[in-house]
């Protein structure tokens, strides 16, 4: 089983490392033709403005929408969550616009307000160590969206069918349980 990590900008190597710990093969995706060789795709953390721009410039938008239309699982972390969202607060144009959630960027404040904490996530037995870096928040969700965890009553992990998002970085810790959860989603699709 191969899981790709969109490698235009951001924390690619960390996701690949975490994916490989689940037993799947991790692939850095730099070109659209690589999408046909993978069964699941992670959109990593980085700067969402930059990743969004590079996705448009290298024509990733439609190929990823088609990938999603086939029901192949997608996982967005931090910037990746913003890229997947249907609506972005503040009038920013949505990027992929695939997932029925509304997000607010840098919702916790600037870097000095960034933090790490333990989170209970529905479907995962042990608490997940979550690193929030200039993190976005999910401000509202559609009917089909299952909220998997909250932090101080704010939604920070969610799933809609084959799509999973977290506003924090599971790839920066030694805890790969959320990657395991995603790998299981990919395995079920196959």
């Amino acid at each position: 089983m191969k899981i790709g990590v969109l490698a235009l900008q951001g924390a690619v190597a960390e996701h690949i490392r975490s994916i490989e710990r689940t037993g799947a093969e991790g692939v850095a995706v730099k070109h659209t033709h690589q999408l046909k060789d993978i069964q699941g795709l992670i959109i990593p953390g980085g700067e969402s403005t930059t990743i969004g721009k590079l996705m448009r410039r290298y024509e990733f938008m439609d190929p990823i929408r088609e990938f999603s239309a086939e029901g192949k699982p997608l996982f967005g972390t931090c910037a990746g969550l913003i890229v997947l969202a249907k609506e972005i607060d503040g009038g920013e144009e949505p990027h992929l616009g695939l997932m029925d959630i509304r997000v607010s960027r840098n919702a916790f404040g600037r870097q000095r307000e960034s933090f790490e904490t333990d989170l209970d996530v529905k479907g995962i037995d042990n608490p997940v160590r979550a690193v929030f870096i200039r993190a976005p928040l999910i401000t509202s969700v559609g009917d089909g969206v299952d909220v998997l965890s909250t932090y101080k009553d704010e939604m920070v992990t969610a799933r809609e069918g084959h799509m999973l998002v977290s506003s924090y970085h599971p790839e920066l810790t030694e805890d790969f349980s959320l990657h395991q959860y995603f790998a299981d989603m990919v395995r079920q699709y196959n």
Binding site: A7, G10, A13, G45, A79, E113, S114, F115, E116, V131
Partner: peptide, 20 residues
């Protein structure tokens, strides 16, 4: 909840990778 940990600080730089 902890702010300013080395993971949070170093992680911020990780998010800049591949960037200008």
């Amino acid at each position: 909840m902890e702010t300013g940990t080395s993971r949070v600080k170093r992680g911020m730089a990780e998010m800049q990778k591949g960037g200008v």
